[in-house]
């Protein structure tokens, strides 16, 4: 379960996780110029240019990208990175990998696309695992509404400024965020229906719900 610290240090510099440089004259290159003060560095996406954006500057970066012509927010998602030996994982959970180095974090990925220029751009923010929060993309892309709710639901990332940030897929009151690597699936939760309010009620007690 826990890898020796030396191994973790060795994995700090991951291999194979590189992103292509934006082509000269492309929108992505212009984005790199316009948003240069918001960019922390290159990202890791293999097939589209990706930039890591400072979490505080994400709304500005999205605004710049949309102004440049990236009008389609194709996807908004996140994943949990737990380098080995730092976070205690529940039994049966997937062995942590050594490839992703650095601190435990959640990376939120925005995949943008420009219909006019047929170009891709990917943005990424790296957030701490405890109470991760980033600005909402809804003011720029109304379609981000449910996508952000899903990320909040499954990974527990809060989006500041989201108009209605509640769980999308799981019932309200669900404990935990299932796509976190340390989510304990062995603890069953039971959902039942409140006859009066018509809302879902979640409980850990067996027999109360299904």
């Amino acid at each position: 379960m826990s890898a020796p610290p030396a191994a973790a240090a060795a994995a700090a510099k991951p291999s194979g996780l590189t992103t292509p440089a934006p082509a000269p004259g492309s929108l992505a290159e212009r984005f790199a110029q316009d948003a240069t003060e918001h960019i922390e560095g290159p990202g890791t996406q293999k097939n589209h240019p990706q930039f890591v954006v400072k979490p505080s500057a994400l709304p500005q970066a999205l605004h710049i990208a949309r102004r440049l012509g990236f009008d389609h927010l194709a996807d908004l998602t996140a994943y949990d990175i737990c380098p080995p030996g730092i976070i205690p994982l529940p039994p049966g959970a997937k062995e942590p990998t050594v490839v992703f180095g650095g601190a435990p974090r959640i990376e939120v990925v925005y995949n943008l696309f420009s219909y006019a220029r047929k170009e891709h751009l990917s943005l990424k923010v790296k957030l701490g695992r405890d109470a991760p929060e980033v600005g909402s993309a809804v003011p720029e892309f109304p379609g981000a509404d449910w996508l952000e709710r899903e990320v909040w639901d499954l990974l527990g990332v809060r989006f500041a400024g989201h108009p209605n940030l509640k769980r999308l897929l799981l019932p309200d009151g669900w404990a935990g965020h299932p796509l976190r690597k340390d989510y304990d699936r062995a603890k069953e939760q039971f959902v039942s229906l409140d006859e009066q309010t018509g809302e879902d009620v979640v409980s850990f007690e067996e027999g109360r719900g299904w």
Partner: peptide
Amino acid sequence: PPAGEVYTR
């Protein structure tokens, strides 16, 4: 597959 992140559609 080697380590990496892709978005395909």
